[in-house]
């Protein structure tokens, strides 16, 4: 339908789609050149086929492969839409729009990085670590089953794990992990549930380390028009609602005004 050099949703061929951990799926798509402009921390809108589910599902990009022209998404089945995605087979197509949002800010001068992920916030950090120069250490928190650990380790980074039930790594939160390991660095990159991000932000502030957080909010369009996915962001002495989809999803922690 796109015949006027405008952006559009694209039917993308699915190369792979399967469960990698209970309730966690990995989808690899031939990404129609989306990969050529995609950056770590951005997301893509995935659209349901079932017509009763109107809104796109914003899914973070887990890996960008410019050689093979693919994007990888690792997503959790959290509702009917993601359940639908989980049942799509390799060889079928899915409608995508992206990449959307702003990725992580990567400063070449910074040479010591702390990467913190929790649960469904882990996937976008995998692409991120490929672009960070210098010393980097990854701290991941899961409820029980971990995933993607080997994929991180493949890139030569040390990964420390915390689980709620102690089945892997330490029993506790990723915050416990950061404290126990006396994590140090010049920049924190975090993605995960809001309470975790708040705790990471507080910790980073105490440690006087800058932090970039990837925030989440219920999203409508994903392109900045519905003004649904807002978060409170500092604006001088006050704050304003900024959109996760186009102003984020990554914000510096000192900008964020918490409501948790």
């Amino acid at each position: 339908m796109c015949n006027d050099n405008k952006r559009a949703k694209l039917e993308s061929y699915i190369l792979e789609n399967g469960e990698i951990s209970p309730g966690i799926f990995k989808m690899v798509v031939a990404s129609n050149r989306m990969e050529s402009i995609a950056k770590a921390g951005q997301f893509v809108n995935l659209y349901c086929r079932e017509g009763s589910r109107l809104l796109p599902r914003p899914i973070s990009i887990c890996e960008i492969d410019k050689e093979n022209n693919t994007l990888t998404f690792v997503y959790g089945v959290v509702g009917k839409g993601t359940e639908e995605f989980s049942k799509i087979k390799a060889g079928e197509y899915i409608e995508l729009l992206g990449p959307l949002g702003n990725g992580y800010n990567i400063d070449e001068e910074i040479d010591e990085h702390i990467i913190v992920g929790g649960g469904l916030g882990v996937p976008p950090l995998l692409e991120l670590i490929k672009h960070l120069k210098g010393r980097k250490k990854v701290y991941l928190g899961f409820r029980s089953d971990s995933y993607l650990i080997e994929d991180f380790e493949k890139h030569g980074v040390q990964v420390l794990i915390a689980t709620d039930d102690g089945s892997e790594g330490i029993k506790g939160t990723v915050l416990d992990l950061l404290k126990k390991d006396k994590a140090r660095g010049k920049m924190v990159y975090a993605c995960g549930p809001k309470p975790m991000l708040k705790a990471v932000a507080d910790w980073a502030k105490d440690e006087k380390i800058l932090a970039q957080l990837s925030l989440e909010e219920r999203m409508g369009c994903g392109i900045g028009t519905c003004v649904g996915c807002v978060v409170r962001i500092k604006d001088g002495d006050t704050w304003d609602y900024k959109k996760v989809c186009v102003d984020g999803p990554v914000f510096f922690s000192e900008e964020v005004v918490w409501d948790v």
Partner: peptide
Amino acid sequence: PPPRIAETYGGM
């Protein structure tokens, strides 16, 4: 304040 959006069957 958010959440401001909720999908429903065939609507939002």
